[in-house]
Every structure is written in structure tokens, then in C-alpha cells.
Deep mutational scan, measured.
Amino acid sequence: MSIQHFRVALIPFFAAFCLPVFAHPETLVKVKDAEDQLGARVGYIELDLNSGKILESFRPEERFPMMSTFKVLLCGAVLSRVDAGQEQLGRRIHYSQNDLVEYSPVTEKHLTDGMTVRELCSAAITMSDNTAANLLLTTIGGPKELTAFLHNMGDHVTRLDRWEPELNEAIPNDERDTTMPAAMATTLRKLLTGELLTLASRQQLIDWMEADKVAGPLLRSALPAGWFIADKSGAGERGSRGIIAALGPDGKPSRIVVIYTTGSQATMDERNRQIAEIGASLIKHW
């Protein structure tokens, strides 16, 4: 067993022997301040990774656009098919120029040779490549099948209805392509620590998230040296922004954090800054 596999296998073990965790309302004060600064709703939840206990939450059962955070769930569904012998990570998928959609920095470079399922998941999570996500959605049967996968996990809230990039439209009061912070946090925890996926697939999923290259201005910008984070960000229309993450000190994750916002007129930089400040408060009061 590799060191990384050992780390993920012992996530519940280490967490069980940690000192009790206590909620700190100071972080919620910052979440509410972010709402004021952005002029928009902000949803927040913080779960203990081992027990699933909610440590703090704000608007945990209000719907927010998922945006690209759905790509972690998508690759979880792909990995479940791999575990069941219905898919192979090494299978190569070929596609054409007509398949390319807006923001496809990886797939646009491989029109000639195609990409493997493993490479597509890596591109979808680490670079948020939209064509990679659409190609992977095709392998599982489309958005409705991802929703069905989530329902089978016990998540009857999260739903995907459309493809990239239309799913980022974020129309107010439109339930399409949305989740709730509580539902997303619980589902992410199941994917990373539950028995739904094999140990190898859980490790692969967290490795992809740990290698995320496009979430630097968010929670990662607030992390002290030595902290662990595996995350996936999302951005959408109407001032929408979000991030889902597993993080913790001492090089291992111990909490799940989900943050979503929508309806702001603020710039992307300002949305990023507010999420980073929430992260800084979380870490300060850990």
C-alpha cells in the first residue's frame, strides 16, 4: 500500500482519535458579512469528516447552483462504474471539434489522439474542462443518470439537468442544476469515506481534487503551510461562485467545507476574496 493510499485508508482512524471539535460562531459572522459585502445569498456548511456531524452552517438547506462543483460527483459516478466493471479508466475516447464547448483548455489539445477516461476526469476536476465533463456525462448516460446515481446514494436534493455550459445559467428560483450545502457536503463525505467506492477509487477521487489547479484564489489562499486540501470550485452566471473541499491540518483532511453564493453584482475577484476570507476565519478558529 502506498503512503497516499495509507493516508486515505486511515482518515477515519486518525479522526477518531482527534480531540473533540467545537464550532466557532466567528466564522458564521464572516459568512454573514460576506453576504453584506456581496449583496447576495451565501450558503455555508462545515462537517466533521469522521462523524458527519454538522459543526457550523448557514442557509444549509437553500438551493444554490452547483456550477462546476458537480464534476466531482460526476467522476465519482464514473469511478463507481469502474468498480462495477462497467468502465475502464484506460479506455480512450475520441471526439471532434464539434464536441468542444466553451472553456476546454485540455480537451482542445487532444482532438487528434483523444483522451482516456482517467485523463478526462483529471481534466474535468483539476482544470474544470467543460468538454471533458460533457464527454464523461455521455459515458454514464447524461445528466439524468448522474441525478439517479445521487438518488441511489441517498441524495434526493442534488440534481443535474443540463450539460456544460448551460448548467451554469443560475436563474433565480430555478431548481435545475442545483444542490443544497448540506446535501453536497453529505454526498461528498460519502464519496470520500464511505463504502460506495473502493479504496482505490476513493484515493483516485481525492487525488484529482488535491491536484486542483484553478481554485488557488479561494480556500487555498488562506491555508497555512502543512495543511491538506482537496477541492473543486465552480463559477456561473449572475454572480455565482462555489467551492467544495476536504481539508485539515497535519497533512490530512478532517472536515468537509461547502460554500456557495449566487445573485451578486460583485466582480469575480471580490467573490473570490470573500470566500478566501471565510476560509481564513475557519482556519483561525479551527
Rank of each mutant, 00 (worst) to 15 (best):
H24M: 12
H24Y: 05
P25G: 07
L28W: 09
V29A: 11
K30H: 15
D33W: 08
E35T: 03
D36W: 13
L38Q: 03
L38Y: 05
G43V: 03
I45N: 06
E46V: 06
N50H: 09
G52T: 01
G52D: 03
L55M: 04
S57G: 12
E62N: 08
E62R: 13
S68I: 00
K71A: 03
L73A: 08
V78H: 09
S80E: 15
R81S: 00
D83G: 01
A84D: 13
Q86W: 06
E87S: 14
Q97W: 05
N98C: 03
L100M: 15
V101N: 05
E102D: 13
H110A: 10
M115F: 00
V117M: 07
R118S: 15
C121K: 09
S122A: 01
A123P: 00
A124E: 05
I125T: 15
T126W: 03
S128G: 04
A133K: 14
L135Y: 13
L136R: 02
T139I: 00
P143G: 10
A148V: 13
A148E: 07
A148T: 12
L150D: 00
L150W: 03
H151D: 10
N152Y: 06
N152L: 11
D155Y: 14
R159K: 03
W163F: 03
P165C: 07
P165K: 01
P165L: 05
E166V: 02
L167D: 05
L167H: 04
A170T: 10
I171E: 07
D174Q: 07
R176C: 14
T178E: 07
T178D: 09
T179H: 10
T179P: 11
A182H: 07
M184T: 04
R189S: 11
K190I: 15
K190V: 15
L192S: 06
T193S: 03
L196C: 14
L199R: 02
Q203F: 14
Q204Y: 15
L205A: 07
D207C: 10
M209E: 06
M209L: 14
M209P: 12
A211R: 03
D212W: 15
K213Q: 03
A215Q: 14
A215R: 09
P217F: 01
R220G: 13
S221G: 08
A225Q: 03
A230T: 03
K232P: 13
A235M: 09
G239I: 03
I243Y: 11
A245P: 07
A246T: 09
A246E: 13
G251D: 01
K252S: 04
S254Y: 02
S254M: 15
S254G: 07
R255S: 06
I256H: 02
V257I: 03
I259R: 06
Y260I: 04
T262I: 10
S264Y: 03
T267I: 14
M268F: 14
I278G: 15
K284M: 09
H285V: 03
W286E: 07
